[in-house]
Amino acid sequence: MGPGGMVPGGMVPGGMVPGGMVPGGTEPRWPDDGRATSGADPAALHRRLSEQVAWHHVVTHELTTPLTAVRELLRILEEELVGPLVAQQHDVLRAALESTETLVGYVDELFDSMSADQASARLELTAVDLGTVVQDVVAKLRQPGQHGGTDVYAVVSPNLPAVVADRLRIEHVLRNLLVQTTRAVPKGSRVCVVACAHAPRTTVAGDRPTAVLVAVHESGTTTGRGGPLDLAFDAAAARVADGALRGGIGLGASLCRELVERMGGQIVSASRPGHGGLFCFTLPVAAAGQAGSRPGSTTCRGR
């Protein structure tokens, strides 16, 4: 797949999802965004959600602080900044650090859960330029203090149609997928975010894309190439969203799927030995009049 054009479903062996990741020829499925609010007093609901979000902030803050201290002090020991260690002590420290990293992952998941209630609230669906969202999220992750050691970059196709989405929520989804990917890859890896137009397998020349696809993909290391993106797409095609994202990869991913599906999209994940992992999701193109398009392609490269 080249970054510059539409991705017909037929170019993805087997299709993204059986039956088509983006149902061909059908209207995008609009989410039922009233399920959490029906019958509730909106002010009371808003107050309750605000209280819950504030509570989560406090809990995660209180967890993160000691966790930061534990990890830093263990690393200081491992780096022998306060004296030499014997091999067995290094082994013990490595085990402790491994468990600490696991805890860090759980705290990240807890942060993600802060959005769980928000996900149940009403979505603010508007026409969104997904290419800009991709670039913004990637730019934030490239700032110091964010996932050091991983080269994160974006490749955005030109003239992407606007999609129907809640911008804040989709930023959350993309950030979560990027965090999960960067957390899973070794330092020095490259992680690519591709945004391109997507059409069903039945596309013929001249058809308009029905969705925009965003793929988060480990694309190799800064010193070598990873597996072709098409292979990862192939692997993704073998796993529908239900199988891929339910269970095993965390609360954050479950929330991502809920959000994407409620915006009328689909999300899949896959991994292939030697070729890294892949998350991708689609969002439906906005109706004419809502849509805006981007004037040109932009690639931003990380460190």
Binding site: T64, T65, L67, T68, R71, E72, R75, V104, Q143, P144, G145, Q146, G148, G149
Partner: peptide, 16 residues
């Protein structure tokens, strides 16, 4: 000059 979320990467913090 810099902004870091905890848990931070010490090498990045020191570089900054």
């Amino acid at each position: 000059a810099g902004f870091f979320e905890k848990p931070f990467e010490a090498t990045e913090l020191l570089d900054c």
